[in-house]
């Protein structure tokens, strides 16, 4: 158990008394749940009693004392969804995922839970997976939803939504285009850069659709690996000054042809990015 993570969270919240829920939310974001040892550290550091913290942690549904799966699947069982067959859908999820409501699958992929109302009763029965809403769900669609989640909901949504912005980028030093018209990701030309990590040196292709995080690379890059990114033309490192707002890793900057700079996090799996368009008429 890494305790320095919880200490950094507490340091961030130092001084704001009464911000226990905010602290617990941040702790949960770091660990995925609230481990008992971490709650004890929170109690010691904030001077609150463990009983009070445990009371808050068990009171709110969004705080969990047990490890959760990679995907959170919430089946609405509010009145409107209930009469339209939400219990059947929850049962179908239980069968398909081979787990119970409130529990996590053995492979730690799914956590299944029921919620009381999502406030979208007209669309019921509703299932929410990782923030993606599925409306008018019936039991035959359950398998499809699980399959879609396994495939990656973010990719699925890029295909469905054509409003995402397609950008053309170039190196910030030599201004050569980084686009690779011969190689397509998400159906549009990919961005090609050179990456180096762990003494490996190879190409990396990124989707040029804004909002898509699809990548292809010569060597498989582990999640959380921080890579150095270079321009394939002038071999300059595409580094930028600010750190990633999500994970503090260095950012990679590229010039957007329409005018502006796009910065992406150099950590594999991190979705931190910044888009700064300075009046480019976009």
């Amino acid at each position: 158990m890494k305790t320095d993570q919880v200490l950094s969270v507490l340091e961030k919240h130092e001084g704001d008394r009464g911000g226990l829920i905010a602290v617990l939310e941040d702790v949960q974001a770091k660990y995925g749940y609230l481990p008992a040892e971490v709650l004890k550290i929170v109690a010691e550091e904030t001077g609150r009693s463990l009983v009070d913290i445990y009371g808050v942690a068990t009171f709110y549904r969004s705080l969990s004392l047990r490890p959760r799966g990679k995907h959170l699947c919430s089946v609405c069982t509010g009145t409107a969804c209930h009469v339209r067959g939400a219990p059947v859908i929850a049962g179908e999820f239980e069968r398909q995922l081979e787990t119970a409501v409130g529990a996590t699958t053995e492979d730690k992929e799914f956590t299944l839970e029921t919620v009381n109302c999502l406030g979208a009763c007209a669309l019921g029965p509703i299932v929410v997976v990782d923030g993606h809403y599925f409306s008018n769900v019936n039991s035959s669609r359950v398998k499809q939803i699980i399959k879609k989640t396994h495939a990656g909901l973010d990719e699925a949504e890029i295909k469905a939504d054509r409003r995402v912005y397609l950008h053309t980028v170039s190196c910030s030093r030599c201004n050569h285009s980084l686009m690779d018209p011969n190689h397509k990701i998400d159906g549009s030309p990919a961005i090609r850069v050179t990456v180096s990590f762990e003494r490996k040196h190879g190409w990396l292709r990124l989707s040029s659709l804004y909002g898509s995080f699809a990548v292809e690379s010569e060597y498989p890059i582990r999640t959380d690996e921080i890579v150095d990114v270079f321009c394939p033309h002038c071999h300059a490192e595409l580094k930028s000054a600010p750190a990633c707002p999500l994970c503090n890793a260095p950012m990679v900057s590229m010039i957007v042809r329409a005018g502006g700079i796009v910065q992406i996090c150099s950590r594999r799996g991190c979705k931190g990015h910044m888009l700064d368009l300075n009046g480019g008429g976009v």
Partner: peptide, 9 residues
């Protein structure tokens, strides 16, 4: 002491 308290909801 604050050894016991309310839990859950």
């Amino acid at each position: 002491a604050k050894a016991i308290g309310f839990r859950g909801r």
